[in-house]
């Protein structure tokens, strides 16, 4: 028996909106510690890892570990039917082939339940070691989204370079080139507008903008995004999900030609 009640149901709506274009089908893993997911895009170049810790739910009952295979587009369709301020409850029986999403309005005057069929999904989990990164950039998520969107009108790839001077995003295409440099800015008055760069060593890596743009669908979840880089390793683009967890996107760097 699984029953997860999330007062901030709008968070789950935003999580699904940020996943559904990258991954078609995925297993949500439910355990005593939380509600999580690890899935790759169809080309196995990008991976998303989601964790919503059990403490973040108003009520969290998970009698035994369960894996719920869901089509993320269909799950997003159902969650779109919830209002942003609805309380969302996810329910499933151990042997059931369906999951129920219950939406309650904040004053309890409207209660809806949507039942969705589950799927059997063969998924391969990758072991992601804890890594020390050469550079970690924390910046406003909307700024990062704007940069990825702007650069993708000019080129297909972005070179992210971190030096003491700041973080540089560069692209090149048929019509020309573009470079955007963001300098460190502690923004003490408005921490959500800060750009903080922790650098052990300068690092420069190239990534496909198509995936970066997909990751920025998570922008409504958090004011800040963290971009962690090391030479010859996948980048980690992380958005915090309120106080309850995170959504992390991993993207393999392109090999320089």
């Amino acid at each position: 028996m699984l029953e997860l009640r999330l007062v901030q149901g709008g968070l789950l709506k935003k999580v699904l909106e940020s996943l559904k274009d990258l991954v078609n089908d995925a297993n949500f893993d439910c355990s005593a510690s939380g509600f999580s997911l690890q899935a790759m895009d169809s080309s196995h170049v990008a991976l998303v890892a989601l964790l919503l810790r059990s403490e973040g739910f108003e009520h969290y009952r998970c009698d035994r570990n369960l894996s719920l295979g869901m089509n993320l587009n269909n799950m997003a369709k159902m969650l779109k039917c919830a209002a942003n301020d609805d309380i969302v409850t996810i329910k499933a029986d151990d042997a059931s082939d369906s999951v129920t999403f219950m939406f309650e309005s904040p004053n309890q005057d409207k209660i809806a339940d949507f039942e969705m069929k589950l799927m059997d999904i063969d998924s391969e989990h990758l072991g992601i070691p804890e890594a020390e990164f050469q550079a970690i950039v924390r910046m406003p998520s909307a700024e990062f989204a704007r940069i990825c969107k702007d650069l993708s009108t000019i080129g297909d790839t972005v070179v992210i370079s971190v030096t003491k001077e700041g973080v540089k995003f560069s692209t090149r295409g048929d019509i020309g080139t573009a470079n955007i440099v963001c300098r460190q800015n502690p923004s003490i008055d408005k921490p959500e507008e800060a750009t903080i760069i922790e650098m052990e060593e300068p690092v420069s890596l190239t990534f496909a903008l198509r995936y970066m743009n997909s990751f920025t669908k998570a922008t409504p979840l958090a004011n800040q995004v963290t971009i962690s880089l090391s030479a010859d390793l996948p980048v980690v683009v992380e958005y915090r999900v309120a106080e309850m967890g995170y959504i992390r996107f991993y993207l393999a760097p392109k090999i320089e030609e």
Binding site: M40, H44, A46, E124, L126, L233, K254, E257
Partner: peptide, 14 residues
């Protein structure tokens, strides 16, 4: 040439 490696080049299956 495809210069986009897959994630399996970096992370092993669990």
């Amino acid at each position: 040439a495809d210069n986009q490696p897959r994630l399996s080049a970096f992370f092993a299956p669990k």
